[in-house]
Amino acid sequence: MITITDIPLQAYLVVAAMLFCIGVWGLINSRNAVRVLMSIELMLNAVNLNMMAFSSYLDGAQVRGQVFAVFIITVAAAEAAVGLAILLSLYRNRDTVDMEQFNLLRW
C-alpha cells in the first residue's frame, strides 16, 4: 500500500473547480430545462470530488468525506427525481421546455 501523496491535492481541487465552473456556466446559459438539471448534477459531482480529495489526503484514518459524499449522492438522486417530475408537469402545462418561457412568476 503506497501513500497517495504523489499526485498533489491541488490537482484534484483544480479539476473540481473547473468542473464546477462549467456547471455554473451551463446552469446560467442553458435554455433546455433538462440541460439545466444536468448542469446541477455536474456541480454536485464537483463538490463530491472535493470531498473525496480532502477525505483521502487530510482525513485518511476517519474517512468522513466519503460519508458526506454518500449523503450528497442520496440528496442528488432525490433532487433529480423531484426535478424531473416538476419538469414533466411543467411541460404538460406550458407545452415547452424552453427556460425563457417559464416566466409565470416574473414581475
Binding site: T3, I4, Q10, V14, S56, Y57, D59, G60, A61
Partner: peptide, 13 residues
C-alpha cells in the same frame, strides 16, 4: 486551492 497551505500529508490512508 493553490495558496492555502494544506496540512498534507495527513494521517496515513
Amino acid at each position: 486551492a493553490l495558496t492555502t497551505s494544506w496540512s498534507v500529508p495527513g494521517p496515513p490512508s
